[in-house]
């Protein structure tokens, strides 16, 4: 019966809303009381499950674009300045037409590669790198249903040295995608999957040199989806995992 008063405030405690001095008392009690610790665990699991289930709806790319356009500041220039800029732009345009496409693609591509590397590192540094923890592809794949606007296949890993650790939702250039984490000989490899049409053009199917990113990375497009496999594992491992994905898709 003593615990009823603790349990009545357990949710407030787990929400981090009891005063600091009371939090310490709560910590001690929950640690030492089997009944309250079991109750706390159950409620934490429910909170976590609600959080996962609650992140359910993703806006369409078209709607996102519409809203972005409506909130983006419109460039305003005076009439005179506008003409001068237009004339200057015309000169630059003529001079740079041939190189701009190439440079634009390359800069867009480098930006995406660097973002992918950042996502990989930031996720592994996180205390909870995956939202769905499972080695079973039949658990991980359905988890993405309703969270991302496309479906994809995960490879069968039996008889391979790779193991699936789990997955999470991710965003690249405000585009939702899937992030899967694999393990091979204690190295973690990230596999990112996005819709090709949502990403900048010019991402050819290539293997990126390690000296450029400090990671090995392979990227390719298949059935309208863009895949990135990245990690500090050897280039051969990255290639093998990429091959498994290509075969599964």
């Amino acid at each position: 019966m003593v615990c009823e008063s603790w349990k009545a405030r357990l949710d407030t405690y787990l929400d981090g809303e009891v005063p600091q001095e009371e939090t310490r008392t709560f910590d001690v009690h929950v640690r030492n009381c089997p009944s309250c610790s079991a109750e706390a665990l159950s409620r934490i699991q429910l909170k976590r499950a609600i959080q996962l289930a609650g992140n359910r709806f993703t806006p369409s790319a078209e709607f996102r674009k519409r809203i972005q356009q409506s909130v983006a500041p419109k460039p305003r220039r005076s009439f005179h300045l506008g003409w001068m800029l237009a004339a200057a732009a015309a000169v630059v345009l003529v001079a740079g037409t041939l190189t701009s496409t190439y440079l634009g693609n390359r800069s867009g591509r480098d930006h995406v590669f660097s973002e992918i590397a950042d996502l990989h590192v930031a996720t592994l540094a996180s205390s909870s790198p995956v939202d769905v923890i499972s080695t079973d592809r039949h658990t991980v794949k359905p988890w993405f249903q309703g969270k991302i606007p496309f479906a994809f296949n995960l490879p069968e890993l039996q008889n391979s040295e790779f193991s699936l650790l789990g997955g999470r939702m991710t965003y690249l250039d405000q585009t939702p995608g899937a992030h899967l984490i694999y393990d091979v000989r204690k190295h973690h490899i990230s596999v990112f999957v996005f819709q090709e049409r949502s990403l900048p053009a010019g991402l050819s199917d290539i293997t990126v040199e390690p000296r450029k990113l400090s990671f090995n990375m392979e990227t390719w497009s298949q059935s309208g989806l863009r895949y990135f496999v990245i990690g500090d594992a050897s280039g051969a491992d990255i290639e093998r995992l990429a091959k498994l994905f290509k075969a599964a898709s």
Partner: peptide, 25 residues
Amino acid sequence: GPEPTIDRDTPETFLLARSSHELLQ
């Protein structure tokens, strides 16, 4: 009044841990 506490032996923990999204949603 204070909320009643949940039973510890319900299958909640078992199922929620397995991300029963559809049920919960």
